[in-house]
């Protein structure tokens, strides 16, 4: 009996590795090896154009007192702290709204929300630059109607970041809502009927039935959105190039600046190793905090 159990376990483990094999190989070759190489580059002085010079941990020492870098990291955190909860709550909220609509209205709403996701970030960023225009952008025209002065938005050091966050939420809201919605649809109707008998409807039903059953999806959205928020690049590049006065220069933008504008690839690699460690720890904490307490 015990031996058969072992055999079964062995088969299960073998099947598991069989299932994992294509991705293990692919991720190793196309992500992990480049990652290791990037780490190696971080120990070098390399301007891309001439051969690398090994300098040990000098890049890391330089980074430790690079004020611009730590400010950029700070801005990344600011971005994350505003962006992640906003996107999470909004997509959950609209998923719940959609879920309680009739099928036809739901379809229309879902499609409308999803359309921004289809447009290349470069173009959607360009459209928003027009909407945000300080002189005759539609948002300022609307503000004028309700008696508020025209705002600078992307041209202001205090508003640029939040203006960009709005755009990034606008792009991703529909897609994240759809993922929430997909798992909401998996909750059997009987659960709600049972709750109804106990007098739990509306918000209460959402709080006690829907949300707990969305745990796995929520963890996914939370972790992936956080990682994504550390890598937002295109939209910022198009709308502000990190300006005005560096107020939207987040970590990845600074890395790109060092790598390709200053051609400091070794230093840029060291910065990304550190950024990687920051995201890694952050994700680990998120996964721990949200882990099932079995």
């Amino acid at each position: 009996m015990k031996r058969r159990g072992n055999r079964k376990k062995r088969i299960e483990a073998l099947t598991a590795y069989g299932f994992l094999l294509p991705n293990l190989v692919g991720l190793t070759v196309f992500v992990f090896v480049p990652m290791v190489y990037a780490f190696y580059v971080s120990l070098n002085d390399w301007n891309l154009l001439t051969p690398k010079v090994f300098i040990g941990f000098d890049n890391y020492i330089q980074m430790s007192h690079d004020k611009d870098w730590w400010q950029a990291v700070g801005r990344t955190f600011k971005f994350t702290i505003i962006y992640v909860p906003s996107l999470f709550c909004l997509s959950l909220f609209f998923a719940a709204v959609c879920n309680s609509l009739s099928q036809r209205v739901e379809n229309v709403t879902r499609t409308l929300f999803l359309l921004p996701f289809a447009i290349t970030s470069v173009i959607s960023a360009a459209i928003w630059m027009f909407l945000y225009d300080p002189k005759d952008g539609i948002i300022n025209q609307f503000l004028n109607l309700v008696g508020i002065d025209a705002q600078q938005f992307l041209g202001s050091t205090s508003q640029a970041m939040i203006s960009i966050i709005v755009v990034v939420i606008w792009i991703n809201l529909g897609y994240n809502m759809m993922i929430f919605l997909a798992s909401m649809k998996e909750i059997p109707g009987e659960f709600y009927e049972a709750a109804k008998i106990d007098g739990a409807t509306g918000w209460k039903a959402f709080q006690h039935i829907t949300f707990p059953l969305l745990r796995e999806t929520s963890v996914f959205i939370l972790v992936v959105t956080t990682i994504g928020s550390f890598q937002v690049f295109d939209q910022i590049m198009v709308m502000t190039k990190g300006g005005p006065a560096n107020s939207t220069q987040v970590g990845v933008l600074y890395i790109y600046h060092q790598a390709f504008e200053v051609l400091n690839m070794g230093y840029a690699s060291a910065l990304s190793v550190v950024l990687f460690l920051i995201i890694f720890i952050l994700s680990l904490v998120q996964l721990r905090l949200t882990a099932k307490k079995d």
Partner: peptide, 9 residues
């Protein structure tokens, strides 16, 4: 592997 900025790899 999700966490590395693409520009670097």
């Amino acid at each position: 592997t999700l966490m590395v900025p693409f520009t670097v790899i």
